[in-house]
């Protein structure tokens, strides 16, 4: 038994590819499917920059043998923006300077997406727990935690105003702050 054809639903599209035995989901995404958002950091499940959602749950994609999730639904950062527009989490990261070198950002955002889908109104502690597997060596985390809380607020506001609110409300605290650094 050698390489296998593996079929996954990646960002709502059915994708088939050939995987060598022992290929991780991370390697399949990057090398077979050309999706480069999830990064290879440690390859040990320690850094979290490869975090993607498998069947709506965040996992370290470097630790998933891709043959074992045949047929699963996978979401990566590439599937987060809607119609070319950044979603609330991405916008809040941009506006809140929650990214510096950017290496952790894809994993941070996917952990945040999983949290906000489960809990639209998380506490600061909930956010800290949700990103506890995602290492950032630049920001000191404060701006990331603030951005995720901001994204939760934006999403709740959008939901309560009918869902058509812009991702970055004009005059928002974050948008105002953007000009002064």
């Amino acid at each position: 038994m050698g390489s296998q054809i593996v079929s996954l639903v990646v960002n709502d599209q059915r994708r088939e590819f050939i995987a060598r035995p022992g290929t991780s989901l991370l390697s399949a995404l990057r090398e077979s499917l050309g999706l480069m958002a999830a990064k290879r950091g440690c390859g040990q499940g320690t850094c979290g920059t490869c975090t993607v959602l498998v069947d709506d749950r965040p996992v370290m994609s470097c630790l998933v043998a891709v043959e074992t999730i045949e047929g699963a639904s996978v979401r990566t950062l590439e599937g987060v923006a809607r119609g070319g527009e950044l979603d609330e989490v991405q916008s809040a990261f941009v506006d809140g300077f929650a990214t510096q070198c950017g290496f952790c950002t894809a994993g941070m955002i996917m952990s945040a997406e999983a949290l906000l889908e489960r809990d639209p109104d998380p506490s600061r502690e909930d956010v800290v727990e949700a990103i506890s597997g995602n290492v950032c060596r630049c920001t000191g985390y404060a701006s990331i935690v603030a951005a995720i809380l901001d994204a939760a607020r934006r999403r709740r506001d959008a939901a309560s105003s009918g869902g058509d609110a812009p991702a970055v409300p004009a005059g928002s605290e974050a948008a105002d702050g953007a000009g002064v650094r």
Partner: peptide, 23 residues
């Protein structure tokens, strides 16, 4: 789940050549 075994696969330190997933 592979959290130990796949880490060994990634670092090339796993002794065995076949994986059997209970998933």
């Amino acid at each position: 789940g592979g959290t130990i075994v796949m880490a060994q696969v990634n670092s090339g330190s796993l002794a065995e050549t076949e994986l059997i997933s209970l998933r």
